[in-house]
């Protein structure tokens, strides 16, 4: 099971995570040997400059973002990264004057660990925000589906087709593109498979959605016209015996497509938010 849930996070954290582990092992092996540590002032300064840059970029991201959660969480994470950087500076300072200092080495390890944890928290915060953006696009599609159930007349259907071509199609294309892209980013095979399956379902159901509304509206329209043109009781007889079945079937068909699409979109939103394989397995089990 992969440790990191996206390839980007994995590529950024995995190498340094391994190096931190190696540093810990070496420290444990040579804890009592009194090894001399080289002057780490320069590499520590480079870390500090990189952290300063991240703090600037992070605050800039917060100021331009409309995501309240990101704006709230990001500054706290930046403080953690800054504190880790300060700890590394202190460690380097201590080791410069006392190259054998065990405490200096412990501070170095702690600083490296905190950097790793801080960057991990930062990447997760940022990633969750990116996921929320995709979720919003999915929610737009869901909102459009809610309108579909209200279509009763040919005029409303014509309006919907006009609006759907104008609004729904681009949103669906965008959603499909973003979910596809996200799928390639995920490290968990099960997450990828579930997302792909649900997205394919939505793509398959989209053309059926328009046709199912079309059939429903046409059936209903035919029924209404009969009421207008012939005797009420005769019309009722035709509707019940001949047309009633068609209308009920068309409603069921329309509702099935809408519900299925809504379920799949809900599933996409749910899977997008998962970060560990356990979540999926647990939910599948439930």
């Amino acid at each position: 099971m992969p440790v990191f849930h996206t390839k980007t996070i994995e590529s950024i954290l995995e190498p340094v995570a391994q190096q931190v582990s190696r540093l810990v092992i070496l420290h444990e092996e040579s804890a009592d040997d009194g090894d001399l540590m080289p002057d780490l002032s320069k590499p520590v300064q480079i870390v500090k400059s990189a952290v300063d840059n991240l703090v600037n970029v992070g605050h800039e991201t917060c100021s331009t973002s409309t995501d309240d959660l990101l704006r709230n969480e990001m500054p706290q994470v930046l403080v953690r990264v800054n504190q880790a950087s300060a700890l590394l500076i202190d460690a380097a300072q201590m080791l410069k004057y006392e190259p054998c200092s065990i405490k200096g080495r412990q501070m170095l390890i702690e600083g490296a660990r905190y950097i790793l944890q801080g960057i991990s928290a930062l990447l997760l915060t940022f990633d969750e925000s990116e996921v929320r953006k995709i979720g919003i696009v999915c929610q737009h599609v869901l909102n459009h589906l809610a309108h579909v159930e209200k279509i009763e007349t040919i005029e409303q259907l014509v309006d919907f087709v006009k609006v759907s071509v104008k609004n729904l199609t681009p949103i669906l294309t965008r959603m499909s593109k973003e979910v596809d892209l996200r799928t390639t980013e995920l490290t968990h095979v099960i997450h990828r498979q579930l997302l792909t399956r649900s997205l394919e379902q939505v793509k398959t159901l989209t053309p059926l959605l328009i046709s199912s509304i079309n059939v429903y509206v046409t059936s209903k329209h035919t029924g209404d016209n009969i009421f207008d043109s012939i005797h009420f009781y005769l019309a009722l007889y035709i509707i019940i015996i001949v047309g009633g079945h068609c209308i009920v079937e068309s409603i069921e068909n329309r509702d099935y497509v809408i519900n299925k699409m809504s379920d799949e979109l809900g599933e996409i939103i749910r899977i997008l938010q998962l970060t560990t394989i356990d979540d999926v397995l647990l939910n599948e089990f439930d």
Partner: peptide, 29 residues
């Protein structure tokens, strides 16, 4: 994204720092 690049710079820099610290210890070991 700028933030990912900035995060990568830090892990690269931290990697170089740890490398400097561990290579010295390895030599001694």
């Amino acid at each position: 994204e700028q933030i990912l690049e900035a995060a990568k710079s830090i892990t690269n820099a931290a990697g170089a720092l740890i490398s400097a610290a561990t290579s010295a210890q390895k030599e001694i070991a």
